[in-house]
């Protein structure tokens, strides 16, 4: 019997035919990376391969690395494997990785969402025999609201803050979510101030040609009274910290898929929770999996046991993929 297209090792997902790993969590010789989030792109690998669009952020976060770039859809031959990257819609540059060996096709989804956020390359379904899917929000209670509706709520909240003389401080993950939110904000309301972590990513993305609204980086000299009506974008950990105190009376908002749950909303102790996620919701997961035409599904991240059982009920051959991931961005948001 020949090897499966991909195998699961203690270093991560491995392709024996092509001798490479996908999003490995321990140092390897050759790592194919779905996207730049910390739980997928780790340091210490000898060689990296990712989309051209993902490269700059990875360099920004991981420092000097040996990285090759690929275009979306470009076919690469690695050993006996044929490999290509396809848009995952998760964050700019994010990809699903297609691996074909001897006519059998497997796809590793990385993180993905179906909704076109106007910023990331929109998700494209890829036909395959076996699909390795994330399921961070793999419960039927997770259903996202349309982006326009969230945008309206967000801007209403900001306007309300301006009217009450409060600074709006919005917590969001600094790569992807923050830039998506920036584009949802109504620049007429006031200036957008950014935390260094957010601005660092902004700079990288602007340099590679993405259009983002103007922002004002917060420095130790920044005085909030020079920026009336401001909204501050910061990573979740900065909310409630000494850093946030300089903005005077404030209302805090928080943007994450977890905000769908009232309990989590209340634990975050933010004034407002906005349900907005860069992961697929329940209907999205089901649609993505259906569209691949795959018979076999491995699920990872999130409520994997429940989601796999449900897929099995519905006729898929589904299994839980054991992973060692530390702090997916959305989990980190909720746990932070």
């Amino acid at each position: 019997m020949r090897d499966p297209v991909l195998t699961f090792t203690d270093r991560g997902i491995y392709c024996p035919a092509g001798d490479f790993f996908i999003d490995p969590w321990r140092p390897v010789d050759r790592a194919l990376i779905t996207h730049g989030h910390a739980d997928h792109a780790r340091s210490g690998h000898a060689r990296y391969l990712a989309t051209h669009a993902a490269g700059p952020v990875m360099r920004h976060r991981l420092g000097e690395i040996v990285i090759e770039g690929a275009d979306y859809g470009e076919t690469l031959r690695l050993g006996d494997a044929i490999v290509s990257f396809h848009p995952a819609g998760h964050i700019p540059g994010s990809a699903q990785i297609r691996v074909e060996v001897g006519g059998e096709v497997w796809v590793v989804s990385g993180d993905y969402k179906l909704l076109d956020d106007g910023l990331s390359e929109p998700f494209e379904p890829v036909r395959c025999h076996t699909f390795i899917s994330e399921c961070t929000f793999g419960l039927p209670v997770f259903k996202w609201t349309a982006q326009e509706v969230v945008a309206r709520d967000l801007n209403d909240w900001w306007r309300g803050c301006v009217a009450e003389g409060r600074t709006a401080i919005l917590g969001a993950y600094s790569l992807g979510k923050a830039q998506r939110l920036m584009r949802m904000l109504d620049a007429e309301i006031g200036p957008i101030l950014t935390h260094g972590a957010v601005e660092g990513t902004n700079r990288v993305l602007r340099d590679q040609g993405l259009s983002l609204p103007d922002t004002v980086p917060v420095t130790p000299e920044t005085k909030i009274k020079d920026h009336p009506g401001a909204l501050v974008l910061a990573p979740p950990a900065a909310l409630g910290s000494a850093w946030a105190r300089r903005f005077g009376p404030a209302s805090t908002g928080f943007a994450s898929g977890w905000m769908r749950l009232r309990g989590v909303r209340r634990r975050r102790a933010a004034d407002r929770g906005f349900v907005i996620s860069d992961h697929a919701d329940w209907p999205g997961l089901l649609q993505a999996i259906t569209d691949t035409g795959a018979e076999n599904v491995y699920v990872t991240h999130g409520y994997t046991d429940i989601f796999a059982r449900w897929l099995n009920d519905r006729g898929w051959n589904a299994k839980v993929l054991p992973t060692e991931f530390g702090g997916d961005e959305d989990e980190a948001e909720a746990a932070a």
Partner: peptide
């Protein structure tokens, strides 16, 4: 069973039902 599995995670039956 899927509702039953979601309920302890949401923590509230009324909310679980409203959400699904």
């Amino acid at each position: 069973w899927l509702l039953e599995e979601s309920y302890p995670i949401v923590g509230d039956l009324a909310e679980t039902i409203a959400l699904i």
